[in-house]
C-alpha cells in the first residue's frame, strides 16, 4: 500500500496539537478551552496510532485507547466543574476566575 507515509500523519497530528494549544492559550470561554484541550489530545492520539502502524506494535493503539479513556474522565470532571461554577452564578471566563492569585 502506498498511501501517504507516516510523515504526513505526523504533520497532521502536529498541526492539530498546535491548533489545540493555540485555542487553550487564547480563548476565554471555559468550554471552548476544554474543547481545544480535546483537539490536543486527538492530535496526540493520531501520532500514536500512526507510529503503531509504523513499527508494527500494538502498544500505540493501546496507549491511544487509554488516552481516550482518560480524556473522557477529564471531560467528566471538567464539565462537573463548569456545572458547579454555573450553579453559583459565576462568570465562565478564565480571566475572571483568578482568586488563586499571589
Amino acid at each position: 500500500m502506498t498511501g501517504p507515509g507516516i510523515v504526513w500523519y505526523l504533520g497532521v497530528a502536529a498541526f492539530l496539537f498546535g491548533t489545540g494549544a493555540l485555542g487553550v492559550l487564547l480563548r476565554r470561554n471555559v468550554l471552548i478551552v476544554l474543547l481545544s484541550l480535546e483537539i490536543m489530545l486527538n492530535g496526540a492520539n493520531l501520532a500514536l496510532i500512526a507510529f503503531s502502524r509504523h513499527v508494527h506494535n500494538g502498544a500505540g493503539q493501546i496507549f491511544a485507547l487509554s488516552v481516550m479513556a482518560v480524556a473522557a474522565a477529564e471531560v467528566c470532571v471538567g464539565l462537573g466543574l463548569v456545572v458547579a461554577l454555573h450553579r453559583r452564578r459565576l462568570d465562565l471566563d478564565v480571566d475572571a476566575l483568578s482568586e488563586l492569585r499571589g
Partner: peptide
C-alpha cells in the same frame, strides 16, 4: 466513545449553561 458519549455530554452542558457569546 468520543463522538458518541463525550461530545454528547459536552453538548448537554453547553445547552445547560446557555448561550455565551464571546468575541474571541
Amino acid at each position: 466513545v468520543y463522538a458518541g458519549a463525550v461530545m454528547v455530554m459536552f453538548l448537554f452542558v453547553i445547552a445547560y449553561v446557555g448561550p455565551r457569546m464571546e468575541a474571541p
